[in-house]
Structures are given as C-alpha cells and as structure tokens.
Write a protein that binds this DNA or RNA. Structure first.
Lengths: 161, 161
DNA sequence: CGTACATCCTCCAGTGGCTATAGGAGCAAG
DNA sequence: CTTGCTCCTATAGCCACTGGAGGATGTACG
C-alpha cells in the first residue's frame, strides 16, 4: 500500500494548496510525479521539501521566475551562490522601498483620518485631500521600483503596496 | 473647434493613461462622455478632476469598489462623512499591518544576505533558510488582513507586499 | 485640395499567481 | 454495495489594468 504520497497529504505537509500544487506542475515549477494505476499523482518526501521551499520563497515575496532560478541553484550545490545572493539582495531593496512608500502613505492616511471632523462630507478632510492632490505630501511616492521589468506593466496597482 | 477636451489631453492633465480612462468608463467608474460627430470622446474640466481624484485614491491603495463609494460620497456633500472616514481607517490599518509584515520580512532577508559566505551554494545561507522553514523567524507573518473579502483568494501573492 | 501624420476608435488577448467550478472517476470503510 | 471522501481534467474567473491589430478621424502644411 501507499507507494507514493497522495496530493492531499503533500498539501497538508507542505502548506501548499492542492490546486496550487497542480498549477505548479503545469507551469513547470514542479516535476510531474509518477502516477498510480488509477492515474493519481504519487509523490515522495523530496517533493514535500521542494514545495516547502517554494512556499517559503513565495512568503518572502519572490516571484515564480526567481524561485525557478533558486531551485536550479539548490540542485547544483557546487556552484557559486552569488546568484542566490543577488536575488535576495534585490528583493531586500524592493522591500526597503516598499516600507518607505508605505510609511509615507501611512502618514498621509493619518493626516486624513485625524483631520476628519466627523461631520458632513463637505468639510471632510478625507474627501478633500483625495480631491486635491496639491494638498498632499507624497508627490514623488510612486516611482516604480527600478530594475524591475515585470512590474512595469502595473503602474498604479494597489497591490503594489 | 474644441467643443470638449480630447482623451489625450485629459490623460495628460489627470495623469491617468488613455486606455485606463476607457477602462474606467467600461467598468462604470467614469460616466461616458458625449461624443463628437466623428465619435470621439469629448470631456470637460470636471472629468479631469474626477480622474485626478481616482488616481490619487489608487495611489493611496484604495480598491476600485472603495473609490466608487468615495465618489458617491463626494457627490452628496450634505451626507455624513462617517463612511469615508471608515474607508480611510480601514486602509490605514491595512497599511500598518503591511508595514509590520514587511519589516519582519526585511529582517529575515537581511539575515539571509548577511549570512551568505559568498562561497558555494552548499554553504549558502540564502538557500539554506529558504529550504528549512524552521530556521526562520516569521512563522506567523502571513495571516491575511482581517476583514478583507477581496484579497482572501490570493493568499500567498507576492504582490501583497 | 491633397497628403502625411498624430490621435482617436473598438475589440480582443494577455499579465501574475493562483482559485473555483463542473463533471466525472477511484477507492476504502461500513 | 453503497456512502462519502479524495482525486482527476478542463475551463473560466479574479484584479486592475496594458498592449496590439486594424481601421477611422482630425489637423497642419505645401
């Protein structure tokens, strides 16, 4: 019995949801495992570890393509780790930038909320500041992170924060 | 001559790209303007102001649906601004949470980068920490923001940061 | 008046990283 | 043998846009 671990167990053990595991296989991030006679995926312990690696990387905000590179590096332990270091450093400066942006954002939102007289909309600081950009202080907040080609196409996305 | 402002001018003046303006019209965020004989959109100054409002709101990370509500409020100046205040406060606590998450993330990335011996992958702290989740410190980092229905479906999205 | 060129139009497909649903098959326990 | 759980594939949807094809319109200049 149990030649291979079922996808549900792998999901539980790795913390990656079942459809996400199948998705990772589809995009070539995870090797297709052998199947049982009935056609079900039969994984091994190593797959759980790989998925944990992927999950942790995603939690740290690395993109799928970067994770692909990191996995390749992991599979060649005799290589230089300069690339891995570079990826991590790039991510670190992204994170620093985002913290800076969000901190400026926080200041402005606080200004809005504190200035709200809790009366009617006509005197509301929240609406006021939104309507008149000149009343705000973060004019240069939104330069997209330098050196990212992938995010360029989504200039104003809320999710950028 | 110039009965109405062309979409290109509006785009320039508001800072919202042309296709995005058409998209906003499509999803009902912006009223369809009258057209010229040739079928081109003819805007007024008020549209530029509305688009500036939208852009600024997006920059502050508000979602389209929230902006819809904010616009409705703006159009009824005699109403209470409690709703606007609520939206801004909700956004503020999201931002605070994200700053906290990112700060934890930054700490872990710094630990990875500092620990890197700049040698081979087999001794690389970066790969090491990614592979073994127990070696990291942010286990409880990623509870999705409470009270957001819209973001629930993207649990691990990198863009969340 | 003709022509070159900028700007506009609609429609549709693609982005990232999944998530959800439909419609079915496999499999162990009672 | 039936109940109920897990699994399978395939497809569509999410957000907030962005980009391109292929064509129409408007304007500046000769």
């Amino acid at each position: 019995m149990s030649r291979g671990i079922a996808i549900g167990r792998v999901s539980e053990a790795s913390g990656v949801k079942v459809p996400t595991i199948r998705y990772y296989e589809q995009i070539g991030l995870l090797l297709p495992p052998p199947r049982t006679e009935g056609g079900r995926r039969a994984y091994e312990q190593a797959d759980i570890e790989r998925l944990s690696f992927i999950r942790h990387s995603r939690e740290l905000g690395f993109e799928i393509d970067q994770i692909r590179t990191l996995i390749q590096l992991q599979d060649r332990p005799e290589q230089s780790c300069a690339d891995a270091d570079g990826i991590a450093k790039a991510r670190l400066s992204e994170v620093k930038e985002k913290i800076a942006s969000l901190t400026a954002l926080k200041a402005e939102l606080e200004r809005m909320v504190e200035g709200c007289s809790h009366g009617r909309v006509e005197n509301c600081k929240v609406i006021d500041i939104l309507a008149d950009h000149s009343k705000c202080r973060h004019h240069q907040l939104h330069a997209p992170p330098q050196g990212t080609k992938k995010l360029d196409h989504g200039a104003l996305r809320a999710s950028w924060y």
